[in-house]
């Protein structure tokens, strides 16, 4: 008893020193300080910014040109259509490629090469792609569609192969055990497992792409972004204000619908236990 009460006072272990964290934070502080000092901004202008923005909003919303509304909604619809077709084009390339990038389906060298392709495609922003595509395909939505399509292959492919690498290996072993060919293995062992999540990510990418496609018009690639470029040129603040509202409302509406569909796809149908039980009893001959 006495030996317990005489135990030494609680000694906390000394805090571990994490060199990695220290190095990263030092580099960050230096980078931040250098940026703040040497960037070409008069910081006093920052204080005037709220007043400037207030004046801009007054110019935008004091006299809203409602007769432009139907034209702007039409342009926003163009942007949505561009985003959807672009996303589908990206999926057509990304899905087969992502099978080639998953280490549990193909060898490591093939997976590595495919991943580098994804990285290259991911690095360039859509707007720059659109800038390069406009002289090729003209000032049309097609340039925007292709910019979004090419720009999304990389990120969709990356998301897809991560999903594929996380699948259950059981069904793959089962298909191998019954002598399935490589294609049959893919069809029955892999695709049923990944289809819901792939669809969900496709819709998620569509939501991101709407944001991209609504600005591509700045470089002449179609959609509502062209209004922005014109506004800067002709100082039509009223139209810009209305276009901004159309973009926000359109994006939120599509987000909401697509989000609801995504949720339903991933959560799946709720199964009635009683109904499922019936099938278990039905297969009595099996057991």
């Amino acid at each position: 008893m006495s030996s317990m009460s005489a135990s030494p006072p609680v000694q906390l272990p000394s805090k571990p020193r994490d060199t990695f964290k220290i190095v990263v934070s030092t580099v960050f502080v230096v980078l931040f300080g250098w940026s703040a000092i040497s960037v070409d901004i008069k910081w006093s202008r920052l204080l005037e910014a709220p007043a400037d923005m207030y004046r801009l909003f007054k110019a935008m919303y004091s006299d809203i040109p409602w007769d432009e509304l139907s034209r702007l909604i039409g342009l926003m619809w163009d942007s949505i259509a561009m985003a959807w077709i672009g996303t589908l084009i990206a999926a057509v390339f990304a899905i087969p490629l992502s099978f080639l990038a998953a280490e549990n389906l193909v060898g490591r060298p093939i997976a590595w090469v495919t991943r580098q392709v994804f990285n290259v495609l991911r690095a360039v922003p859509e707007v720059i792609l659109a800038l390069l595509f406009v002289p090729m395909f003209g000032l049309s939505p097609m340039a925007g569609v292709l910019a979004i399509g090419v720009g999304s292959i990389g990120s969709l492919g990356k998301l897809f192969y991560e999903i594929i690498e996380n699948i259950d290996s059981g069904p793959i072993e089962a298909t191998d055990a019954v002598g399935a060919s490589r294609l049959q293995r893919l069809r029955w062992g892999v695709i049923p497992q990944v289809a819901p999540e792939l669809t969900s990510f496709l819709l998620y990418r569509f939501e991101i792409n709407i944001r991209a496609s609504s600005v591509l018009g700045v470089v002449g690639a179609g959609g509502i972004g062209g209004v922005l470029a014109d506004t800067v040129r002709f100082k039509e603040y009223g139209v810009a204000g209305l276009a901004l509202i159309v973009v926000i409302v359109g994006t939120i509406v599509v987000d909401t619908i697509s989000g609801a569909i995504r949720h339903r796809i991933v959560a799946g149908r709720t199964i009635d236990i009683g109904e499922a039980q019936k099938y278990v009893v039905d297969t009595g001959g099996l057991s």
């Binding site: 901004i41 008069k42 004046r55 944001r211 991209a212 700045v218 800067v232």
Partner: peptide, 24 residues
């Protein structure tokens, strides 16, 4: 959600109209 619905380039366009061109 409203802030998220506005793309980066549109934010930039707004602020260029408001505070003028440059890095700010």
């Amino acid at each position: 959600n409203v802030v998220r619905a506005i793309p980066d380039l549109l934010w930039a366009g707004l602020f260029v109209l408001g505070v003028g061109i440059g890095a700010l």
